[in-house]
């Protein structure tokens, strides 16, 4: 098993600083969705991780903890995530993306 980043939607959707999306070295790995936070009744959208692209460097954890001071991202073992976004399930819109969450474990 290996570690991937996991965003706490409750904290992220109440702050919505989008800093982590600008600091990830992997393209299209930390995505932003307007709907993810609003579905849960928050004012803003939330960042989320395409776990199949995450290399587990934890750079975003430092950015969220030390630059943004939000502490919303934690490293989690991939089999401990009941549901996560995968690149194949991400749809791009005009200003935001949407993801259908599914179990990241195959088989």
């Amino acid at each position: 098993m290996y570690l991937v980043a996991n965003v706490n939607v409750e904290i992220c959707a109440s702050k919505s600083c989008k800093l982590c999306t600008q600091y990830c070295p992997e393209a299209n790995t930390i995505q932003y969705s307007e709907e993810m936070g609003k579905e849960q009744g928050f004012k803003y959208g939330s960042a989320y991780i395409a776990v199949d692209r995450c290399k587990g460097c934890a750079l975003c954890v430092w950015v969220c903890d030390s630059l943004a001071k939000n502490n919303a991202i934690k490293m989690t073992m991939i089999d401990q995530l009941p549901k996560a976004a995968l690149t194949d399930n991400i749809t791009y819109g005009d200003k935001s993306t949407t993801a259908v969450l599914a179990s990241p474990m195959v088989g």
Binding site: T21, E26, A27, Y32, K95
Partner: peptide, 17 residues
């Protein structure tokens, strides 16, 4: 706008972080 559009860069074999 990063994180809300498809980037020209794709997956690559560089080291993590």
């Amino acid at each position: 706008q990063m994180g809300s559009f498809k980037e020209a860069l794709e997956e690559h074999p560089m080291c993590a972080g």
